[in-house]
Each structure stands twice: as C-alpha cells, then as structure tokens.
C-alpha cells in the first residue's frame, strides 16, 4: 500500500464537488457521487448533459478541474502514477468499440495483460480464451475486428476489458452504435457480468436494462445530478420535473 491509498475507503468511487470545463463550457457542476463496491449504476440524461464526461473522469480520460475524485482508494491527480494505478483496476467499454484493427481478437485481449501486468504469454492466452468464451465469441478469436459484426465486436471489447480483471467496469453508451438486432446480445452479456458482483457504471438509454440490473439510476442534466434513486422509485415517481420530461420522451 502506498501513500495514495487509504484502507478505510468504503466507497469504490467517491466524487466530491467535481467541476469541469471545456473551454468556457461548464460541463460538470459540483458533481458529488458515491458508489459502493458491487453497485450497478445506470446514468442517463439528454445529450450534452455531461454523462459521458462524468465516467470518463473516473479513469482519467478527462481531467477534472476542481473537487476530488477517489477511485478504489486512489485519488486521481494530474500525476501519471495515480492514473495508471486506477486504469489497471478499471475497465472501460466504448460506444465505438475501439478494438485494435491490426490485431486479432485474441491479440486485442492479451495485449494489456502481457504488457501492463506482465502476465506470461500462455497465461494471457488462456485468460483471453476464458473471457472470450464467456462473452460467447471464442470461435472468432483468430479473426480481425473488421471481420466481425458490430455486436460481436462490442462483446470482444468487453472481453478485452475483462482480461485485466478489473474491479470496476465503465460503459459509455455501449449499445448506441449497434444495429437494433445486436443490442440484445450485448445487453445480455452485461447482465451476466452484473451477476458476478463487479461494480458497474453504465451510461445508456436502455431503460429495460436499467430496470433489470441497476441498483441505482442517476439522471444528469446540464452537468448536475438531478435524480439518484433505485429503479423502482426512479421510473415510477421521479422527483425532478426534468427527469419526468426526459422519461416521457425516452419511454414510449
């Protein structure tokens, strides 16, 4: 344990009064969020509300300007060391998959374990196959991403993130770039992940998924968290009027 970790952090994610600007645009306003280990959080909101920015701050893809962000006991600062530590334990799945096109699916999965965690080639190979089987595309292991369908690519991306054995998974609109018939296979994969107790923060419009899996649903608008409730209350009796307006547009 080094000076950046504190043993008594009961929160997996602890955001305190976080602010962020893009130039003059105030994207995150005094965001305070606490997530326990094993919780599954769905974040929703209109486009431009800052929901993507929020989770991207959690693994250092975006830098916050004020406030504190503590992930897994490590406080995110501008120092590369803290960011690297967090990124080793947090996996991320992108809207555009972002698989490495010049590597096979298997190589995509083994790259980080070999280079970052210094896992041996054989061990990384087995690990990758294990997760590829879990997401049900082990037969595509030798293919290049360009040869896979969108749903298969996203599942491969999930497997790639899982190969680092993360404590927490971040999903940034994982199904938004998929054709409708492939959304279900990805969502099913994510549901099975949820059953394993891994902490999940998911930005998505898929409300059915939220109802099924989430412990809490968060509504964010204009950079502020306006609603934070368990799904039942959230959908049945949202407190904030903007939440109601948003839900009426999204659920029809």
């Amino acid at each position: 344990m080094n000076e950046h970790e504190r043993p008594e952090s009961q929160f997996h994610v602890d955001m305190q009064a976080v602010n962020k600007w893009f130039g003059t645009l105030h994207v995150l306003r005094d965001v305070t969020l606490k997530v326990r280990r094993g919780e599954r959080i769905v974040i929703c909101g209109p486009s431009g509300s800052g929901k993507s920015t929020l989770i991207r701050c959690l693994n250092g893809l975006e830098a916050h300007h004020s406030g504190r962000i503590v992930v897994g006991g490590v406080e995110l600062t501008r120092e590369v060391k803290t960011i690297d530590q967090v990124r080793r334990r947090v996996g991320m799945v992108f809207q555009q998959f972002n698989l490495f096109p010049h590597l096979t699916v298997l190589e995509n999965c083994t790259l980080a374990p070999i280079r970052v965690k210094k896992v041996g080639r054989k061990a990384a190979h087995d690990l990758a196959l294990h997760y590829l089987t879990r997401v049900r595309i082990s037969d595509q292991a030798g293919k290049y991403p360009g040869e896979l369908s969108g749903g298969q690519q996203q599942r491969a991306a999930i497997a790639r993130a899982l190969c680092m054995n993360p404590e927490m998974m971040l999903f940034d609109e994982p199904t938004s770039a998929l054709d409708p018939e492939m959304v279900k296979e990805v969502l099913n994969t994510m549901v099975s992940l949820a059953d394993e107790g891994i902490t999940m923060l998911c930005v998505t419009h898929e409300m059915g998924f939220a109802r099924q899996v989430a412990n809490r649903v968060i509504f964010i608008d204009g950079g502020r968290i306006l609603e934070d409730n368990e799904p039942d209350t959230f959908f049945r009796a949202p407190g904030h009027e903007r939440t109601r307006a948003f839900l009426s547009q999204v659920l029809h």
């Binding site: 250092g60 893809l61 501008r78 120092e79 590369v80 060391k81 960011i83």
Partner: peptide, 8 residues
C-alpha cells in the same frame, strides 16, 4: 489527445 498529465 488523452490527458496524460504533466509529471516529473
């Protein structure tokens, strides 16, 4: 492109 922050 990705904020890899200033360091030592």
């Amino acid at each position: 492109r990705v904020p890899m922050f200033a360091d030592r």
